[in-house]
Design a protein around this nucleic acid. Structure first.
Lengths: 203, 203
DNA sequence: TTGTTTACTGAACACTGTTCAGTAGATTTG
DNA sequence: CAAATCTACTGAACAGTGTTCAGTAAACAA
């Protein structure tokens, strides 16, 4: 059994090796400019080898995609301990912004790049998305119980909030913040976020 | 002179022909999947011909990019006649949303896809962006004179508003509205926008 | 009619994702 | 231990990509 175990381990290690190289190349060049040959060269194997561990380029991409979501959810975990729902909502926004700042390329890969999506993968990823969105909606409902967002529909409000956060991060990732040459991108994001929180507070 | 004039005209016509085909292919497949050979086939010329009219694939892309901005600014023109600045601001948002809805692929091409940008092109496009952004900031300042947005910094507020609008459109273009399976995408956008306007009104 | 200019072609180059026959080495069997 | 099998890997091949450029045929000027 020890041999089979070792082989299993080696297989897992090889997958990691490929994924590490892929992460580097994908985050450097983006989906379309990253090539299998680049990744193969990085780990000093032939291109064909990669196909022994991943079905195609897309499967590698989606493995990284999932990794990104795990990374983000990890950062969100500690917020469970913030009891006041509005405070938790505000903290969630900051964590989101912070994640985009610290993992610019990951954010791009997770939320902006659209790689050809196979149906099986789609399901899994939507589950991830639904869970996150449901969490947001719950926080909003809790806020409503505390008197916030009177007469607001949680579905639409959650979309607005998601849009604003995503919009900021998308503009940041694609360097559109240059449109404000006088202001540091992160200062812009933080203060833009404060503007938005001010709106939420008065709503 | 008539011959030279005709040649000039023919050259212009050929450019248009290429651009028409390119628009079709680019909007169908996106930047990376659209190929010069596809475009050439569409107009029944050899691939080499296209390079007699455009420096490279990028130049074609940016010609379409510009076309998109002209299209959008055209839709914004009539809003000059809305005298109340806050009403104008609200109308601008709707026009923006409407544009993304009616020109989904164009919006994607204009605001989400990032093609390798050459420095010369960058300048022109930033001018476009700066002008639009300056216009937004001016409207916001006029709103402030009418009592809106007290104690708000126009720079940051404009970024927040831009982010929200772009966020909605980006989620729409990349089919993220599916996260709300019960709600029609455009209903989501319109109502999300109303949520946002409600916030702006109270700010 | 001859010479020149112009518009266009399509083969070539270096790249891409992906497949698959072939191989060298590790493992199992007799 | 030797022979057979099995496994992991290779790298050439295929059809595609953007781009270049020598060659050509038609339109124009002399």
């Amino acid at each position: 059994m020890t041999i089979a175990a070792r082989k299993e381990r080696e297989k897992e290690e090889m997958r990691s090796l490929i994924l590490d190289a892929a992460r580097k190349i994908f985050l450097e060049k983006g989906y379309y400019l990253a090539s299998i040959r680049n990744i193969a060269e990085e780990i000093e194997y032939s291109p064909g080898t990669i196909y022994l561990y991943f079905k195609d380029k897309d499967e590698i991409f989606h493995a990284l995609h999932e990794e990104g979501f795990r990374k983000m959810l990890e950062k969100m975990q500690p917020l469970e301990h913030v009891t006041d729902p509005f405070e938790r909502l505000k903290a969630m926004g900051l964590v989101y912004l912070e994640f985009a700042k610290n993992n610019k390329d990951f954010y791009d890969l997770m939320f902006i790049i659209q790689a050809p999506i196979k149906h099986e993968q789609e399901k899994e990823e939507w589950q991830m998305g639904h869970r996150t969105l449901d969490y947001l909606k719950n926080v909003l409902r809790q806020c409503q119980q505390k008197g916030h967002f009177k007469n607001q529909n949680v579905e639409f409000l959650s979309f607005t909030i998601w849009s604003t956060m995503h919009g900021m991060c998308a503009l940041y990732c694609r360097d559109r913040c240059k449109a404000y040459p006088e202001i540091e991108p992160m200062e812009l994001m933080k203060n833009g976020y404060h503007s938005f929180v001010a709106m939420l507070e008065k709503l």
